[in-house]
Each structure stands twice: as structure tokens, then as C-alpha cells.
Amino acid sequence: MSSSSPMPVFDGHNDVLLRLMRGKLQPERAFLEGDNIGHLDWPRMKQGGLLGGFFAVYVPSESDGTGVDVDALMTQSRYDVPLPAQLALAPSQQVTVHMASLLIRIERASKGEVKICRTAADIRQCLDTGRLAAILHIEGAEGIDPDLHMLDVLYESGLRSIGPVWSRPNIFGHGVPFRYPSTPDTGPGLTDRGLELVRACNRLKIMIDLSHLNEKGFWDVARLSDAPLVATHSNAWEICQHSRNLTDKQLAAIRESRGMVGVNFATSFIRPDGQRNDDTPLEEMIRHMDHLIEHVGVDGVGLGSDFDGATIPAEIGDARGLPRLVDAMRRHGYDEATLRKLCHENWVNVLERTWGQ
């Protein structure tokens, strides 16, 4: 590690709530005391300087129904991962409430060390005092009903960010599949209900996450939304031609809206060959940062790790490895002011522009 006080990091995406829900240990204790499983727990986050981020609520499919070995498939030179079927509302709501409750219980059990943040001022206060700034985020709105009653309930529980779809389809739209090589233009965009969800999020000032939307869905949001365009965990398509990555035209729209892109640590979205392989140099990630800075601007780029939800470079390993990434960024030539923007300041600023507070 570079120092005893690493650069503070605010991160665009993690899946630790899903890992904790599936785990055998008591979730609050596992997270707060540390279970050393996967990429994240609070002790390891503090060691790596990871003091905040988006905690995703994601409803997994019980079975993908395809019988495909995804890990093996994503080592091939070309692949198109079959997606599971659309989920039913009632079981999705049960899982959504369960996972949101996990974050609420972690906050309650933390004795003030963890805060579910509802304003940018909340986040800044946490970063200043060394508390964990957590944003309740939904990745795929399967748990939200067509009349959006659940959206109101979740908002009052602290929800401030939502991705209308994960990669599988739902009543709000169509996600982008895990396909290489491919453009993100893979099918229909938002449904009429999806358009209404965007309008409701604008009214409530809930951030809309574009990362799993296909290209038509992206442009649907861009035309309708009055908020900054944000992709919490996506990379540059010009470097890695994966369907999950963003084209230069999309990046230009994000820049025009004063929006944001969080660089995803998933190796299949980093590597030019699209492979899921942890033997991926940090310099490959920094190529994406350079491209995003060129096309979105230095005020519109941050980190969006996908910790506990992806295969990440072995050199990072887990949250404790973030200072190694920061050191690589520093060696590449980013000055300290730029590092602060990329590591945390840009996220706080775009959320202030989105939330209005």
C-alpha cells in the first residue's frame, strides 16, 4: 500500500448485498466485522480507502434455464451469453425488500459508522469523518410494480438511484446482453411503463443508471430525462467492443448533460479481447480512463468497480487493492487534483446536480 491514509474512494457499483444475502453468516456482522469473503466488507474497505458507494439491490434468477457454463463461454473469442427469462413481480418484491432491509440493518447495527445517504451533503460529511457513505441503488426494477407504488416505498427507505433494467428484459425495458464482439444496439428500448418510470424518477430526483440499458434504451432516457446522464459501471466501446460498453456518441451525450461514467473493473469490459481473465494489467483500465476523460471530460469520470459482482484484475484483488490502482493512475501522470476528482469528487458533484441537494 502506498500510505497509511489511502486516497478516499467513492465507488459507482457493488453487489455485496447479494453476496451477504446468499451467505451463511449473519449479514450485519459479516459485513461490519469482516468475513474476508469476496471483495468487500467494512474492515477491508477502510484499509483500501473505500469510504462510499452505490449498494445494489439485484434480484437473481433462481436458474438461468440455459444450462450454459458462462465462465467457459466467456473465454471464447466470440460469445453471446443466453439471458434468463423475465421474473415475476411478487417473488422479486420479496427479494428487493430483503436486500434493502440488509442495508438498513447494517446501518442500524453500525453504531454510526455507516449512513444511508440521501443528499450530497450526507456523502461529504461521511467522507470528512471516515464513515461509510452508502447509496441504496436498484439494479433492475423487477421488484417495482406497474403503478410504481413500490418506488414510493423504496424512496422513503432511502432509494436514490435506479437502473430500470439489468440485462434480462422486464416490464420497463430491455437490457443489453453480455455479447462480444457487439455494439450496444441489441434490441428494443424502454417500454411505455419504462418511460413513466423515468418521469417518476425525475420528479423524485432519483438518479437513473444507464449501465445495463441497451443503446435504444439509452437514447430513450436521453430524450426524456432532465437529469445528468449517468452510467455507474461501464467502459469505452472503442477500446473493448463489448455490448455493455458505451460508444463515443453515447459518451458525447453524457458530456453534454454534465453526466458521469464509472469505470468498471470487470475484465471482460476492459480487455480488447473481451475475455473474463483476472490476468489483466491495470494499464488496460487506465486506457479506458484516458478515453473517457477525452470524450466526457475530467469532471465526468469516476470508478464503478462492480466489486462482488465481477472478475476483476488480480492486481487489485479486493477493496484493499484500491491504493495499487491509485498508484498506477499516479504513475500514469494524473496529478493529485485529478486523482481526487476521479476517486470521489466527481461522484459527489454529479449526485448534487441530480438530487438538487
Rank of each mutant, 00 (worst) to 15 (best):
A85R: 14
A85C: 07
A90G: 06
A90L: 14
A90P: 02
P91V: 14
P91I: 15
P91H: 12
V95Y: 11
V95G: 01
V97D: 10
H98A: 15
A100R: 01
S101D: 13
I104H: 06
I104L: 11
I106T: 04
E107K: 03
A109Y: 00
A109S: 14
G112V: 09
G112D: 04
E113D: 14
E113T: 13
K115Q: 13
I116N: 06
C117Q: 02
R118E: 03
T119V: 04
D122G: 01
I123F: 04
I123S: 05
I123P: 10
R124F: 00
R124P: 03
Q125M: 03
Q125S: 10
L127E: 05
T129A: 05
T129M: 02
R131A: 07
R131L: 06
L132I: 15
L132E: 08
I135T: 12
L136H: 06
L136M: 14
H137V: 03
H137C: 03
I138L: 15
E139L: 04
E139Q: 13
E139F: 04
E139D: 11
G140N: 08
G140D: 08
G140R: 06
A141I: 08
A141Q: 09
E142P: 00
G143Y: 02
I144R: 08
I144P: 08
I144Y: 07
D145E: 10
P146K: 11
D147G: 08
D147P: 00
D147A: 14
M150E: 15
L151S: 09
L154P: 08
Y155E: 06
Y155P: 01
E156T: 13
E156Y: 11
S157H: 15
S157P: 01
L159W: 06
L159Q: 06
L159C: 07
R160T: 12
S161D: 13
S161C: 15
I162M: 14
G163M: 06
G163P: 09
V165G: 08
V165R: 06
W166K: 11
W166C: 09
S167M: 04
R168V: 10
R168P: 14
P169L: 11
I171P: 00
I171S: 11
I171V: 12
H174M: 12
H174K: 10
V176H: 04
V176C: 15
F178N: 15
R179K: 14
R179W: 02
Y180C: 02
P181V: 15
T183P: 01
T183D: 12
P184I: 13
T186D: 02
T186R: 08
T186K: 09
T186V: 13
G187D: 03
P188D: 15
G189Y: 10
L190S: 10
D192M: 00
R193W: 04
G194S: 09
G194F: 00
L195D: 09
E196L: 13
V198H: 05
V198P: 08
A200R: 15
C201T: 13
C201E: 12
C201S: 11
R203F: 01
R203I: 14
K205Q: 15
M207G: 12
M207F: 02
I208H: 06
I208E: 01
L210Y: 04
L210P: 00
L213V: 14
L213Y: 06
N214G: 09
E215I: 06
G217V: 07
G217Q: 05
